[in-house]
């Protein structure tokens, strides 16, 4: 055994020195590499999870908004249709009223015109009767004058 130890150069001081070297490596790597990297990996995983949930929330928001917009649009469409229909009805009624009014006025005008025409005819007749009478009197006077 002693020979073996001598052959391989086993020395407990060297073993301890190498163990200390390894301990330094563990501490250094643990402090500067493994710890920070593990923290970083976790931090990044958290960030990604956060980002994913934010994206999910945004997607939901968008869907809700799209639904809302759809319903608003539908309502607007509906309203527009009602308004147009009402306007059409109103227009139809208005037109009927206007046409009726126009007809009434036309009739009234016609009636007035007929009345006036009749009046004029009557006046004309009266005037010509008077003329005829005067002419007849004149003619009678002429006849009487020549005979006398």
């Amino acid at each position: 055994m002693g020979d073996l130890i001598h052959t391989f150069g086993v020395d407990w001081k060297l073993i301890i020195a190498q163990a200390i070297n390894f301990a330094i490596v563990v501490v250094v790597l643990g402090y500067f590499v493994f710890g920070p990297v593990m923290r970083l990996l976790k931090e990044r995983a958290d960030k990604i999870a956060e980002g994913l949930s934010a994206a999910e929330a945004a997607r939901k928001d968008r869907e809700t908004l799209a639904g809302e917009r759809q319903s608003v649009l539908q309502e607007a469409h509906h309203n527009a249709e009602t308004i147009v229909a009402r306007a059409q009805d109103d227009g139809k009624n208005e037109r009927a009223t206007i046409v009726k009014l126009a007809q009434d006025r036309a009739e009234a005008l016609l009636r007035d015109a007929q009345l006036e025409a009749e009046e004029q005819k009557r006046a004309a007749l009266k005037a010509s009767e008077a003329e005829i009478a005067r002419t007849a009197i004149l003619a009678a006077e002429k006849i009487l004058r020549s005979n006398v």
Partner: peptide, 12 residues
């Protein structure tokens, strides 16, 4: 190549 090193690692 030094048994002291490998032995140290083994003991740890």
């Amino acid at each position: 190549t030094d048994i002291n090193m490998t032995l140290a690692m083994a003991i740890v």
